[in-house]
Amino acid sequence: MITIGSTQLWVHDQEEALKFWTEKVGFEVRSDVTLDGWSLRWLTVAAPGQDVQLVLMTVPGPPVMDADTAEQVRALTATGFAGTLFLVTDDCRKSYEELSARGVEFTQEPTEQPYGVDCAFRDPSGNSVRLGEINAAV
């Protein structure tokens, strides 16, 4: 059987991303290691009780990416268009209030949708995140 183990977000600063995802969103650290022979820090977080991990990946330079490509990835991430992370919650409005109180700045307040209620925020690197309460019928 194949399952999803992790997904990744490009981040501009791993320390800033770590503080955001743990202190503001409430995730917990799962891995934080620097790979031998690489200047790569494998940093993952996850929602408590969930197996799927979110890799907070710094944009690499050479030899993985040339400098121009790395800068393009950083710029695209900052606009919120490098992909969207979809989170789910049992109560979107309550989660919105809790996260707002912790300092998460939302780009969209909870809104009724045909599939439930959702809202949106961006992380410090600019990544787009949607938080939704999905109807059982969807």
Rank of each mutant, 00 (worst) to 15 (best):
M1R: 05
I2F: 15
I4V: 11
I4Q: 01
I4L: 13
I4F: 04
G5I: 06
T7R: 04
T7I: 11
Q8E: 10
L9F: 11
W10I: 05
V11F: 12
H12G: 15
H12P: 10
Q14W: 14
Q14P: 00
E15I: 15
E15K: 15
A17I: 05
F20M: 06
F20D: 04
F20P: 00
W21R: 05
W21L: 12
W21P: 11
E23V: 11
E23T: 04
F27I: 09
E28T: 10
R30D: 15
R30L: 10
R30F: 07
S31R: 14
D32L: 11
V33N: 07
V33S: 12
L35T: 10
L35N: 06
D36M: 13
G37N: 03
G37M: 04
W38M: 14
W38Q: 07
L40G: 00
L40P: 00
W42D: 08
T44P: 02
A47S: 15
A47H: 14
A47Q: 07
A47P: 11
A47E: 14
P48C: 02
D51Y: 10
D51N: 12
Q53N: 09
L54S: 07
L54F: 01
L54Q: 07
L54M: 07
L54E: 10
L56K: 03
T58Q: 13
T58F: 00
V59G: 00
V59S: 04
P60F: 08
P62L: 10
P62D: 11
P63H: 08
M65A: 08
D68V: 08
T69R: 13
Q72V: 04
V73H: 12
A75F: 10
A75L: 13
L76Q: 13
L76K: 05
L76F: 05
L76I: 05
T77H: 01
G80M: 04
G80W: 10
F81V: 04
A82T: 10
A82R: 05
A82E: 14
A82N: 15
A82L: 05
G83S: 11
T84W: 01
L85P: 07
F86Q: 01
L87M: 03
V88H: 06
V88T: 15
D90V: 01
D91E: 11
C92K: 00
C92R: 06
R93P: 02
R93A: 02
R93F: 02
K94P: 03
K94E: 13
S95F: 00
S95H: 04
S95Y: 01
E97C: 09
E98D: 15
E98N: 14
L99N: 04
S100D: 03
S100E: 06
A101M: 01
F106D: 01
T107K: 03
T107I: 01
Q108E: 12
E109G: 09
Q113C: 03
P114D: 12
P114T: 07
Y115C: 01
G116A: 08
G116W: 04
V117C: 02
V117F: 07
A120F: 09
A120T: 09
F121H: 12
R122A: 02
R122E: 06
D123A: 03
D123T: 05
S125N: 09
N127Y: 03
N127E: 07
S128W: 01
R130W: 11
L131R: 05
G132E: 03
N135Y: 14
A136L: 14
